[in-house]
């Protein structure tokens, strides 16, 4: 039963857990220790909204540096921020050979988590079933960065957070469902094949962009000045499928020298010159991919944005 070596990395938002407590939790969970040779690795403990791109780089670089020591990786992470962190990691690590499974619990209120050891144990109990599923999944042939917060495993960069309250707040296109979990882990045909090339860390990332959410009655002229110092512009159209005239003029001008990406779920009613329209990716994947490419070059073109680097293109 102990034929595989799995690293369990803590990147949780339960800020009362420190490295020592995390080590103790993993080592004193006999259920984990009969499945694999597990090593606890504490990476960070911080509220979701305090996670930065630098934290993503720390995590990817940690996994990269220990990649030859383990058969798979499990990352404990709040479900709310997991899509972004996992998507970033999926871009940062090229030719990934082992599974990286993000897991944790859905529905644990931060307010309920206090510093008492008993409450930490309750938190641990809540995530234990998912953690066990993740450790088992990290042992199999699944060269993907994936999320496991229920009885299915989904590709992170094909997943979005659903608006509103839901027992399972993640949405993944069918092509992103990698495995079903019942009494075993049953892989689907969507799993990427193991890449042949050497694993590389490509974690340069540029966050110096302006992000605009379209809304009515917005004075877009206020972004002209800050835009001068930005390296790119990313627009989320949500359900509007068009760009307001005032913003279109800004895009055309800015887009002459710097990249502009417009994310939409469907075709735009009208083309906007000097921009790249993205409709075959989730919004988080499109945004993170944009910043990742911008980290490598200031000149991003449509072909680069549409290239399927890590299985992020919706089929």
């Amino acid at each position: 039963m102990l034929d595989k070596k799995i690293a369990i990395l803590y990147c949780g938002s339960n800020t009362s857990i420190n490295a020592g407590q995390f080590n103790a939790l993993v080592k004193k969970t006999p259920e984990l220790n009969i499945m694999a040779d597990v090593d606890p690795i504490f990476v960070w403990s911080k509220p979701i909204l305090d996670i930065t791109a630098a934290d993503w780089q720390v995590l990817a670089s940690k996994i990269y540096s220990i990649r030859d020591n383990y058969d798979g990786f499990v990352v404990i992470h709040s479900s709310l921020g997991a899509i972004n962190t996992a998507t970033a990691v999926s871009f940062f690590i090229e030719n990934l050979k082992q599974p990286i499974l993000f897991t944790g619990s859905i529905g644990v209120s931060q307010a309920e988590i206090k510093s008492h050891w008993e409450n930490i144990k309750t938190y641990w109990q809540n995530i234990k079933a998912n953690l066990i599923n993740a450790v088992q999944s990290a042992k199999i042939n699944l060269p993907e960065v994936a999320l496991l917060y229920s009885n299915q495993i989904v590709r992170a960069n094909l997943t979005e957070l659903l608006a509103g309250a839901s027992a399972y707040p993640l949405y993944t296109a069918d092509s992103g469902v990698l495995a079903k979990i019942d009494f075993s882990i049953r892989l689907t045909k969507n799993v990427l094949s193991k890449p042949a090339g050497k694993t590389k860390l490509v974690d340069t990332f540029n966050t110096n962009i302006e992000i605009i959410n379209l809304e009515t009655a917005v004075d877009y002229s206020s972004i002209i000045t800050p835009l001068k110092n930005r390296d790119g512009l990313f627009i989320k159209t949500k359900n509007f499928y068009s760009v307001p005239k005032a913003l279109e003029n800004i895009i055309v001008e800015f887009g002459k020298t710097k990249p502009v990406a417009i994310h939409t779920d469907d075709n735009l009613e009208k083309d906007v010159p000097n921009s790249i329209v993205l409709k075959n990716m989730t919004e988080p994947a499109a945004l993170i991919k944009f910043m990742w490419l911008l980290g490598q070059t200031k000149k991003i073109n449509k072909a680069m944005m549409e290239k399927n680097y890590r299985g992020e293109i919706i089929r």
Partner: peptide
């Protein structure tokens, strides 16, 4: 979770495999 819907599991030692530890843990 499918494990919530069952009452118990039975394992015969000659029929164990890669999933046995996992099933016991769950």
């Amino acid at each position: 979770m499918v494990f919530e819907s069952i009452d118990a599991i039975i394992i015969e030692s000659e029929a164990t495999g890669a999933n046995t530890g996992y099933q016991i843990a769950l």
